[in-house]
Design a protein around this nucleic acid. Structure first.
Lengths: 215, 215
DNA sequence: GGTGAAGCGGAGGAGACCTTCCGAATAGTA
DNA sequence: TACTATTCGGAAGGTCTCCTCCGCTTCACC
């Protein structure tokens, strides 16, 4: 729906919409997703009215950034699957996604807000099968430690992506932490068994998105 | 100075101050360090005037939370050093600190704000020597991979601590990621060499705290 | 218990931020 | 070029948060 309306838009409207989205990414990355929208209008060199016509509320803007992110992620699927071995698929998955996250520090805020707006929405549901498949194949191959799950890997990616908070200057170094994690994921006879229970995507989703009651 | 004044305070003042600090931790953990201070006053069952007498600005409150955190951290030093081997010191260090961080999701925000207030302040300067020593001993012992530095380990702790964002329900599972990281830190003949240059604490500090110019 | 100093609460002014509205400007079409 | 529908810009009113001020209360000491 968003794309359809975009196509039929007047040229100036489309230009302003794109400018607003790209400035919103920068602004939210710098100051968090609660940054003043007036500031966004200024940076995009657009009046407040224009901003509110394109995005009637902050949440509408956040939804647009979310859709944008999901579209970017979809492009990675083929690239990850095209690796010659399942282990290399795991490596690419970790590297591409955590790098992608680290370059977009506004993403965690977006996801948290989306979860508040609609706690039942299961983001990435379409990826879960793909990821479970990679893990299964890499473990069958004997390259990935057998006690790890796709959920564990997703959380590791999230952790690695959080390094984006240090600002762009750190990005060239984030691969060091990535390498430590990757080495820790290799199947080895002397690996420490992972403690606690393995989680399904659904369990993890409920755990992280349903707010615990104020105690 | 803070401690001295606390001692000579009237009983009601001390009680309110402590209540404000403990509610601030909970509020900031839930809503971020920009949460409305009126809300804090309500939760602490205190008037706005009382809040502002104890902490004349939001930054004064943040400074108090920072001091509180540093005091807590100091208590860990002896515990970490008391381990029978240097490798176990590394394990304890990772486990204690990343667990501590994960239980205190307001800490990253506090540190970021402190860095803005005073970009030249080098937090944890007093710990750097300790940490470098542990790394050196564990590497001499042959247990810790030789290409890792104390800065790399601190960043790994930060990553693991970021899992606190998922809320208290995830905490029992965070040890799975901790285990993967720990396994990745062991010295092994077939470990992937860490890419990029090793950083000193000072370099890392400058990189992460000096805001890059708006581009 | 009395007294003075220290601390408390909450009303309310100041300012930031959100959002709407409408006359002016612009894109697309004939 | 002229016309119309669409979009733009920014002024202005409403709301939320910050923070101060001052009359009242509580504590500590005598």
């Amino acid at each position: 729906m968003l794309v359809e309306t975009t196509v039929t838009m007047r040229r100036d409207a489309r230009r302003n919409r794109e400018r607003l989205i790209s400035e919103a990414k920068r602004l939210f990355a710098e100051r968090g997703i609660d940054a003043p929208l007036d500031e966004l209008a200024n940076r995009a060199e657009v009046g407040a009215g224009t901003l509110y016509r394109h995005f009637p509320s902050r949440d509408a803007l956040i939804q647009a950034l979310y859709d944008d992110a999901v579209a970017e992620l979809h492009a990675y699927g083929p690239q990850i699957l095209a690796a010659p071995t399942a282990w290399e698929s795991v490596e690419r998955w970790l590297e591409l996604l955590s790098g992608w996250l680290a370059e977009r520090p506004y993403i965690p805020g977006i996801l948290r807000r989306m979860a508040q707006i609609d706690p039942d929405h299961r983001p990435g549901l379409e990826f879960e099968e793909l990821l479970d498949g990679i893990v299964e194949r890499a473990q069958a191959e004997g390259s990935l430690r057998p006690d790890v799950t796709a959920v564990d890997l997703s959380i590791l990616i999230d952790m690695l992506g959080s390094l984006g908070q240090y600002g762009g200057a750190y990005l060239p170094y984030w691969r060091r932490q990535l390498t430590v994690v990757t080495d820790g994921l290799r199947a080895r006879p002397d690996a420490t068994p992972l403690p606690g229970a393995a989680l399904e995507f659904g369990e993890f989703h409920d755990m992280s998105h349903r707010k615990r009651p104020a105690d």
